[in-house]
Design a protein around this nucleic acid. Sequence first.
DNA 1: AACTAACCGAGACGGTACGTCATGTCTTAGG
DNA 2: CCTAAGACATGACGTACCGTCTCGGTTAGTT
Lengths: 185, 185, 185, 185
Amino acid sequence: MARPRTRSRVHEAVLALARDTPIGSMSMEGIAARAGVSKQTLYRTWPSVGAILFDALLARSVDEHGAVTVPDTGDLAGDLAALAEATVAELTDPLQEPLLRGVTAALQADRALAAQYRDLLLRPQLAGIADRLRRGGVDDPDDVAELFVGAILHRWLLRNGTFDRGWVRRHVARTLRGAGDSGVG
Amino acid sequence: MARPRTRSRVHEAVLALARDTPIGSMSMEGIAARAGVSKQTLYRTWPSVGAILFDALLARSVDEHGAVTVPDTGDLAGDLAALAEATVAELTDPLQEPLLRGVTAALQADRALAAQYRDLLLRPQLAGIADRLRRGGVDDPDDVAELFVGAILHRWLLRNGTFDRGWVRRHVARTLRGAGDSGVG
Amino acid sequence: MARPRTRSRVHEAVLALARDTPIGSMSMEGIAARAGVSKQTLYRTWPSVGAILFDALLARSVDEHGAVTVPDTGDLAGDLAALAEATVAELTDPLQEPLLRGVTAALQADRALAAQYRDLLLRPQLAGIADRLRRGGVDDPDDVAELFVGAILHRWLLRNGTFDRGWVRRHVARTLRGAGDSGVG
Amino acid sequence: MARPRTRSRVHEAVLALARDTPIGSMSMEGIAARAGVSKQTLYRTWPSVGAILFDALLARSVDEHGAVTVPDTGDLAGDLAALAEATVAELTDPLQEPLLRGVTAALQADRALAAQYRDLLLRPQLAGIADRLRRGGVDDPDDVAELFVGAILHRWLLRNGTFDRGWVRRHVARTLRGAGDSGVG
DNA sequence: AACTAACCGAGACGGTACGTCATGTCTTAGG
DNA sequence: CCTAAGACATGACGTACCGTCTCGGTTAGTT
């Protein structure tokens, strides 16, 4: 609904605020001020701060076009490790982390937003991973994808420790073992 | 700092509100009103809504005394399945779910609260599971516990589907396979 | 800054409260509620209860337009007596008295308000009286005006007795004698 | 009711606060803290901040024992001028002014306090002046005392200018002329 | 010397108000 | 016509005081 120009100004503002201020204190008012846009313009397009955060996230993904691009070199374990590293990098990137945490928090209270998030971001990402697993010969790729992503998210979301390289390698091995063995890649 | 009477009144109020109103709309003011307590009394003891939610959660765990009691019948797979069922029941219990989602959301923006949560609730729970796994002959019980819990949390938190009995059974099997085989229990 | 509609609603509210409740208990919150106006709207225009009281007083004076209209019949003593009676009537009018006491109290603690009061209300009133005195042939009209008003204010403000007709007559005579005698009117 | 030790500690606290902080912001809580006394102790003896201020004022007068001591040298005009100078000095003394303004403000909203003030401070002071005037041959000494004090109070209370020596001299002359001429002293 | 009051500090408590900020709606000008 | 600017009612924020209410400890005068 908003003009592309307005949209991008809002996205920039949101990213800037995510970098500079605590996530919890982001407000429609603050975003409007930072974007040099009136509050009304914001409300005309987005119903809440969470929705704006999500939209900014989405725009980022779409720009770089195509949610997760899972590598496929033929070496499944290696590819998964690379993917895990990339995911961890994204989750802990100082620019992205606040955004992601903000959206995750918003999801807990806003079912509509949760549905959008699931359909437009989460499912495509999981599907990408599942596809790679399937090509690697894994039998129940959807569930294994969940297993793979779940532990990473758990650790990140509940702030239960950091992600070192060793952990990632072991995690991949464990996940593949859980997958039932499976082929070589 | 607060008198026990006050504390329990606040906990009751918080539980009642969690049941009756959307989580996101819980406020210090609303809690005070519902508990028949003054705002200042709230602030004297808790710095935020999230802290109250967490305290209520903690009180619940402590009352029933001893965080997670992991069953130990000698049948590891069976015990894990029972534990998973119990966890899922808790996560989807209409009384507890809003509380848990509220706390999880708060953790994203409040590092101090996250640290408390980690030390007082999360770690003990994971340690309980890891102990059971260790007794079952699992080599790296901490990581496997994370794998076990991670997928459940991922599905619940991002609202990516429901938990049917079949899924739980398969999840346990997958986790144990990931554990490297392992003993019989 | 506030819209005229808002302004007048606030003035009405303040007058109503001054009539119905003890002055000391007037609050921004109470005024807002009575006026059907938000607190923010109040603060956007007035910094304190005292400022609102003063503004209401000012509006009253301005509406009836032209602060004090000192009578001039040629009979100075008579005119001063009439003026004194009018002043006393105003000071003891159940509707105005609380307002005036409230403002006077506020002046003691708020220098900015005191300056406004002096410039916009007090000085014009004294000047009006001084003019009449000057036309009556009084030499130092400003100081005599102060003498005239001072005793009245002293009695009223410190609640040191009432104002009967005899006292007023004698006060005028004394003041004029103090003026040095002077002309006839 | 309070022990003398407590009383004096409270008085000291009030004087210190009057010196250091804006009058309007004096509170029971603040006084208690400054005096190292509990709130309950305060309330047991004084019903309000105004009452404490007044009590401190009273204690000061009583300590130096005997409210106003009007000089009597035989030269009425000179004595009045000296008295006026002393009064002005007191009113503008940085230590006393805030106290006096605070009490005056409190009087406007508290009739009980006003009555106490009138009987214990104001009337004795006026009586002292009236006595001196009577001894000087003035006919209606009470009213003239009011005239004398009124203008000073008016100027001070409404912050309508300063008190220079010339003004005081002229004010005394004017007052005495108002007194009907009178004797020489 | 022991007893008995009254006085006292400390501070939790239910409240009211403070002054500020954000929400979502609506109105008013200006480009 | 769309927009920024911003007034507005609403309501929550976190803080400060209010006046009341225990709770123990400590002065003082009695006995």
